[in-house]
Nucleic acid binder design. Sequence first.
DNA 1: GCATGATATTCATCTTTTTGAATATGTTTT
DNA 2: AAAACATATTCAAAAAGATGAATATCATGC
Lengths: 130, 130
Amino acid sequence: MNEYTNEITLLKALSHPARLAILEALRPGEACVCHLEALFGWRQAYISQQLMVLRAAGLLADRREGWNVYYRVTRPEIYTLIDALHQISQSGETAPLPIPPPSCTCPRCQEKGARRFNKHPHLEEVNPTL
Amino acid sequence: MNEYTNEITLLKALSHPARLAILEALRPGEACVCHLEALFGWRQAYISQQLMVLRAAGLLADRREGWNVYYRVTRPEIYTLIDALHQISQSGETAPLPIPPPSCTCPRCQEKGARRFNKHPHLEEVNPTL
DNA sequence: GCATGATATTCATCTTTTTGAATATGTTTT
DNA sequence: AAAACATATTCAAAAAGATGAATATCATGC
C-alpha cells in the first residue's frame, strides 16, 4: 500500500483551510510572509508553520530579499486541481444520480459457471495488480 | 475559518491510498464490494470502512441487488481532480524553478511613503476579505 | 557588536485519523 | 425459521495532525 505516496503527501498538504487560503493568496504571484500576516490576520508563527507544510510538499519555494522572504508556487498546475475541487464542492449535494450503469465486472460476477454458493476465487488468480 | 468546509471534506476523503485506489477501481464503472475485496486482497470490513468515508463525502452512491451492494461514483468530475493530482505528483521533484516573478503586492510593500521601520497597517484597512 | 524587524523552529498538548477485532444487519436459499 | 453470505457498524488503541507558546535564526541599521 505504498502506492500513491506522493499523491497523498500533496493531498494532505492541501487538506487544510489555512493552506488552501494561502495558495489562493499566492495565485496572482509571490508574496512575503508579512503580506499574508496582514491579509489574514493570523499569527506569524502560524503562517510560517503552514508555509512549511506547503514547502515540504514541494508546492512552494522561497526567496529571501533583505528583511522579507517571498514565497511562490512552484507548480501552477496545482490550480487546475484546486479549480476542479471548487467545482465539485459547489455542485449541489447529491445531484439527481445518473441511471445505474451496467453490471459489475467483479471477478466473481464474471465467473461463467458462477455457482451462487461458492468461495471467492483465490486472490492470486484474480489480482493483476489492479 | 469556516471557509472551504466542503473542499476540506472532499480532500480528506481523497487523502488515503486505499480510497484513491478504490476510486481508481471504480473509474470504469460500478463494482460490488466483493469485487474490491478480491481485487485488492483487503479485509472486507476495511473496504467497507473506506467506502463509508467516500460515501459520506458524497462521492459514492450504492445500489443493492440481491446479495451484493454495488458502488458507483456520483461525481465523475472527481477524476479531473485525480488526473491533475497524478500529473503534479509525477513531475520530477522541484523542477528548474521559474525565474523569480515580479515583486510582492504586500500592503506594506505597497505603501507609497513606505518608511522601512514601520508597523503594519491595521488589518481593517487591509483585509478586503481576501 | 547590539538592538530591531522578519521569519523559522521546537515543544507540548489536544484532537482527529487510522485500522484491527469483534459484532451487527439484511438477503437469499433450503 | 435456520444457515450461508455479503456487507455495515461499533469499539478501542495507536498514529498522525493541529496549534498555542516560547524561542531561535538571520539580515539590517546604528
